[in-house]
Simulated scan of single mutants.
Amino acid sequence: MNRKAIVVGAGLGGLSVAIQLKNKGWQVEVFDKATSFKSMGAGIVLAANGMKALERLGVAGEVKISGKKVGKAEIRTWDGKILFQLPTKEMAERYGTYSYLIHRASLQEILLDKFDGAGLHLQKGVSGFLQDESKVTALFTDGSQVEGDVLIGADGIHSAIRANLILNDKLRYAGFTALRGICSFKDEGYGLKSGGGFEAWGPGKRFGFSHLGQDRIFWFAAINAPEGKEIPFGSRKQAALHHLKGWYPPIEAVIQATAEEAILHHDIFDRKPLSQWGSGRVTLLGDAAHPMLPNLGQGGAQAMEDAIVLADCLSNSKDMAEAIFKYERERIRRTTKMVHHSRKMARMMQLENRVAIGFRNLMLQAVPSDILASRLHWVVGHEV
């Protein structure tokens, strides 16, 4: 009889582990509290390690078609002066692939198609679980129950599975809030042919501009602000324009080109890394296990790396608790380092003190681009 996995969360990590386990002969059921999959969302960058994970999942080709390669990656000052450029061509030659940017909803749709929909259940919120030596039982808010051999919490930063495993585990505010939008926009300096884009850094603020594929631009603004200061629908474009008035010319224009209803607003959080994610037949992956700030662009890639390693460990062992222990030992050191480095980068990127900013900018301009790229090797050069 095939072993059965219960996956909670139909995001990138949940669908990835479902695909891998299904490919290895498991019966897989995926549960998500959402009523439907919305097209709203933001762009997601997939560096070489993320693309290698997608190759393992069998969908890298579809992502390259739907997304856009990152042919240009610049960091500028708020008024447009170059701080450094990543050698994207040389990095692509070294790692065998360019980085790609894609709409998160498009990537989710690609993964859903690969999973083939069978075993996917929406409107299924989880209230908890029970387990013994022979099985684990997921408990749902509608009163239903499902039994399986393993339960995987892939239900994001506000994970219900994590809440049932770990007590008094609080979110950590990053110190900045984010406005994000998608629009159609053309600029000769950042033509669609090359792909990619830039980030511009100013005092306590930064702005990112990237080609998303299908003639669309994804942008974000990260702004130092107190936690919980809501920017409501109808005021978000105005807020972005206010904070970025007079910045590098494409910035105000791309914000103006974005429909108000297409602008998202979220405070940014992570959690303190854990030394253990699961217990017995239950474990976590992706943002449920190790939510990180977006500064390394690795949230999605790390979820997919988790998924591949977990599927391999579970399929190579008859003892679920032992397999989960092996998975956590293999993944926790890398993801913990990601969480720490993402937070460290946030402090550097969101500086407000002008003297500190001047020193940072001089240091970045003085370091050759190949040296800066080599410092990212541990991130993007990894293959699960």
Rank of each mutant, 00 (worst) to 15 (best):
M1K: 10
G11W: 11
G13H: 05
G13C: 07
Q27A: 13
Q27N: 13
F37L: 09
V45K: 12
A48M: 00
A48W: 00
I65H: 09
G67D: 03
K68I: 07
K72W: 11
W78V: 07
A92E: 02
E93P: 02
T97H: 02
Y98P: 06
L101A: 15
L101F: 15
R104N: 05
L107M: 07
Q108C: 09
D113F: 08
F115C: 10
G125K: 14
Q131K: 06
V136G: 03
V136H: 03
T137S: 05
L139R: 10
D142C: 12
I152M: 06
H158S: 14
A160E: 15
L165S: 06
I166R: 10
L167Y: 14
L171F: 13
A178W: 12
R180Q: 09
G181H: 07
I182R: 03
K186S: 09
D187T: 09
E188Y: 11
G191R: 09
G191C: 08
K193W: 14
G196P: 06
F198G: 04
A200R: 01
W201A: 08
G202Y: 04
L212H: 01
R216N: 05
F218C: 10
N224L: 09
S235R: 14
R236I: 09
H243S: 12
L244I: 03
W247K: 02
P249T: 03
P250G: 04
Q256D: 04
A259L: 09
L264P: 13
H265N: 13
H266N: 15
D270R: 11
L274G: 13
Q276G: 14
T283I: 01
L284I: 04
D287F: 10
A288M: 07
L293D: 10
G297T: 00
Q298V: 07
G300E: 07
M304Q: 08
D306P: 04
D306A: 06
L310Q: 00
D312I: 00
A321I: 10
E322G: 12
F325D: 15
F325M: 14
R329I: 14
E330T: 11
I332C: 11
M338V: 14
R343A: 12
M345H: 12
R347C: 15
N353K: 08
F359M: 14
Q365M: 02
A366H: 01
V367C: 03
L376W: 00
H377Q: 03
